[in-house]
Computed example of a mutant assay.
Amino acid sequence: MIRVSLPRLGRIRTHESTIKLSGRIQTGRARILSATVRYERGRWFVAFQVETAREMSRVSHPDTAVGIDLGVKHLAVLADSSGQTRYEPNPEHLDGVLKLLRFHSRRVSRRQGPDRRTGRKPSRRWEKANRERNKVHHRVANLRADALHKFTTRVRAEYGTVVLEDLNVAGMLRNRRLARRVADAGFGEIRRQLIYKGRRNLCTTIVANRWSPTSKTCSDCGAVKAKLPLHVRVFTCDTCGLVLDRDENAARNLLALAANCTTGTGVAGDQDTPRVSKPREADRKTRRQRPGRGGRAGGASLPHQRQKETGDRRQDTEARHAPR
């Protein structure tokens, strides 16, 4: 039986097996750097940061690039340079247990829970109902993490170059119609896993600019549409007549950005960079300011413009004080 010694807590028995970790530590192949203890939904977890040697896994197609477009209807659409397109289905783990979660949440709300203002402690029936609800949340979280790890590991073991889009996940979560599905899909977690697993395998990760019109651009002729609402799921080009799925068209455009970065014919974003878009603070500093009137603060102008403004002010002053 394996136990963990934590400061101020003593020796605690672990729920999961740590035989492999203890074996590597005893043989000198691993070293524990730190431990992080956290509390989530009624359970305590301890995570170890371990320093160990890891063999680099070889990619089956190192010269093949793939463009990945993340979505809600399909979790991901993959378009590679060999001409193949694959659709990764969205498991929707949370939608399958919403009815069960509503049932457990009603049971919890109808029982006497804790109150910080009065110092009231929860009843045993409330604690029991809360544990049953937390089990459902833990199961959904574990299923989601397992599916995302399998998907990202499969992609990184096959392709040498992966092109992603810098999605504004925080902005998507403000949409009350899409917030639950976007949070259940885990767009940010997919990007994080693809980036660090690519560095582990010495592969390339390209993050496209957030403002690049990948969905509005025709992947065949390059024409850009003015508007493309979100409810329109089929892309129709007005120039060449291409009719294609919206997500597949975006995945092909992301794949084209990989060729531009490789050949140097375009700029698709920095490689292995979590954030490509310009922050708001820098945007405010570099934003063009309006020229001030009468030399007031905040009117930034060039030297020749300042000379012209000085002359204009002098003429205005002479015209105002001239006798009529």
Score class of each variant (00 low, 15 high):
V162E: 04
L164E: 03
E165Y: 04
E165I: 07
L167G: 05
V169D: 05
G171K: 06
L173D: 01
R174E: 14
R174Q: 15
N175F: 04
R176K: 15
R177W: 11
L178I: 11
R180E: 06
R181P: 00
V182W: 00
V182F: 01
D184A: 02
A185K: 01
G186T: 03
G188K: 01
E189Q: 13
E189T: 08
I190Y: 00
I190W: 00
I190D: 00
R191S: 10
R192P: 00
I195D: 14
I195F: 11
I195Q: 14
Y196M: 11
Y196T: 13
R199T: 09
R200I: 02
N201K: 05
L202P: 00
C203N: 14
C203E: 14
T204F: 06
T204R: 15
T205D: 07
N209K: 10
N209H: 15
N209T: 11
R210P: 10
R210L: 11
R210Q: 13
W211N: 12
W211D: 13
P213H: 07
P213A: 10
P213E: 03
T214Q: 07
S215L: 07
K216H: 07
C218S: 00
C218Q: 01
C218A: 02
S219Y: 00
S219G: 04
D220Y: 03
D220T: 10
A223P: 01
K225E: 12
K225N: 09
K225L: 13
K227G: 07
L228W: 02
V232R: 13
V232C: 08
